[in-house]
């Protein structure tokens, strides 16, 4: 990895950390565990489209690990890690099938994947089937927030220098 690439990815990681930190300061809009805007996903989407999957994975992992350290939510590390990885996997898969167009659809699928991953961890940890009652709410919120972050990434196209 060239020094320039390292610096660029470092900047992207900082950017997503700041977005994540700001989002953490916003009180949860809906009192349902797992529902949030997921604004930091904008950075992942931009990296996936304008850079490469490898760069997106690196920045995502760095952001999740650093945010667990910085914002002291080590308990939620497992949730964000699983949600983030499932989401990125789905996004990479469908981004490829969509021939790198339609970033909004990719983002919606990522949002759904994130919430599915989270509820899977929650099921595993609480061992209570009853929390599946949250599933329709989580699916809906994943679609809505995915739509929002997707449009953000769409309008960022061309405003952030691409990888060369």
């Amino acid at each position: 990895m060239s020094p320039k690439k390292l610096a660029t990815l470092g900047l992207f990681t900082t950017m997503s950390l700041i977005i994540y930190g700001v989002e953490c300061a916003i009180p949860p809009l809906v009192p349902i565990p797992g529902i949030k805007l997921g604004l930091a996903n904008i950075v992942t989407l931009v990296l996936l489209r304008d850079f490469s999957l490898r760069d997106a994975i690196l920045v995502l992992l760095a952001r999740i690990l650093l945010s667990a350290l910085l914002f002291g939510q080590a308990l939620s590390l497992l949730y964000s890690l699983t949600g983030g990885i499932v989401s990125l996997f789905l996004m990479a898969l469908f981004h490829h099938f969509l021939r790198k167009k339609e970033i909004v659809i990719t983002s919606i699928l990522g949002g759904i994947g994130h919430n599915l991953g989270q509820i899977a961890v929650a099921l595993f940890l609480t061992k209570t089937i009853g929390i599946l009652a949250y599933l329709p709410f989580l699916l809906l919120s994943g679609i809505l927030t995915g739509c929002f972050t997707g449009f953000c990434a769409h309008f960022l196209q061309g405003r952030i220098p691409r990888d060369r």
Binding site: P28, I32, P33, T126, I131, Y134
Partner: peptide, 29 residues
């Protein structure tokens, strides 16, 4: 717990949604 979402979920009187405290793995149904 750090997020206190369980407190924000308020008082429930139907089985529409359970109250969940994920950090303490507590579910009230």
């Amino acid at each position: 717990c750090p997020d206190r979402i369980c407190v924000r979920q308020g008082y429930i009187h139907t089985s529409l949604l359970p109250i969940t405290c994920l950090p303490h793995r507590l579910v009230i149904q």
